[in-house]
Design a protein around this nucleic acid. Structure first.
Lengths: 138, 138
DNA sequence: ATAAATGCAAAGCATTTGCAACCAT
DNA sequence: ATGGTTGCAAATGCTTTGCATTTAT
């Protein structure tokens, strides 16, 4: 979140960004590591972590943290909302307009200076609820 | 989030709940540990963690996870929203009505079954923005 | 030239867990 | 009685870091 000075374009950094942009799955650092390693067998996990941090501090990617476990990352840093499925654990982007008026609402409450907001929904995703209803047929 | 069977009322569990209810500060597990330890020097951190998990799975408290570091907990499990200050790191409850219509919106998009939603705002809190404007006087 | 970035491995640290003893029901 | 719960300590696992070397600018 703190803007950084100049950040270099390194092969590793580019590879990480490319991997992140190639998926809609909000992967973990380790998944990114495994992917990048396919093209670049000697990258280190440390580099992955350092870059994910740098990139998210620069606003190029989003760091999501749900549950107390590992972070997930999203190359889409535009305002959008997530749905977290409590059955399969997937995180998907919702096709839902961004609601900037929410931030205005907060600024009306008091002297808050709002930079961003985050909205997420928890429940059962379409895929899982389909499976659930089918399991009734047994 | 998964409802549990019967959960016993133990001294430790009661103490943890009491500590959580006594503060508005959304403390970490370790802070809870330190507090409970004042009354009960032999509690173990493991017990704190196990209970925080049990309680949040039972919906009696809320587990908040921001950043990739440690979780924070909130004894107020009713629908409410948070403001996270990027300057001082504080997390405060916002005096803002819950917006159940957001969940309806998602259910209209597709076959989502929404249990809860979470909304948080990031920026500078009133205290910090006051300090910032005063520092201009130097 | 030089400051940033990397690889590697060694921490760091929040959280979890195995197990025997304990206690709420 | 008995199965959930605790204390303790060891273990886990994600993430960070120190350092010598490499690399982008």
């Amino acid at each position: 979140m703190k803007p950084k000075g100049f950040i270099r374009r390194t092969r590793q950094r580019e590879a990480i960004l490319e991997v992140l942009r190639s998926t809609k799955s909000h992967p973990t650092a380790d998944w990114v590591y495994q992917e990048v390693r396919k093209e670049m067998p000697h990258v280190s996990l440390g580099t992955i972590y350092r870059n994910l941090r740098t990139l998210s501090e620069n606003g190029e990617i989003l760091e999501l943290s749900y549950g107390s476990n590992h972070s997930r990352f999203d190359a889409n840093s535009e305002c959008h909302y997530h749905f977290i499925c409590e059955s399969c654990g997937s995180i998907e982007d919702l096709e839902m307009d961004c609601l900037p008026e929410l931030e205005k609402k907060v600024e009306k409450i008091g002297d808050y200076e709002v930079f961003t907001h985050r909205l997420e929904f928890h429940g059962i995703c379409p895929d899982c609820s389909r499976e659930e209803s089918q399991s009734h047929l047994n």
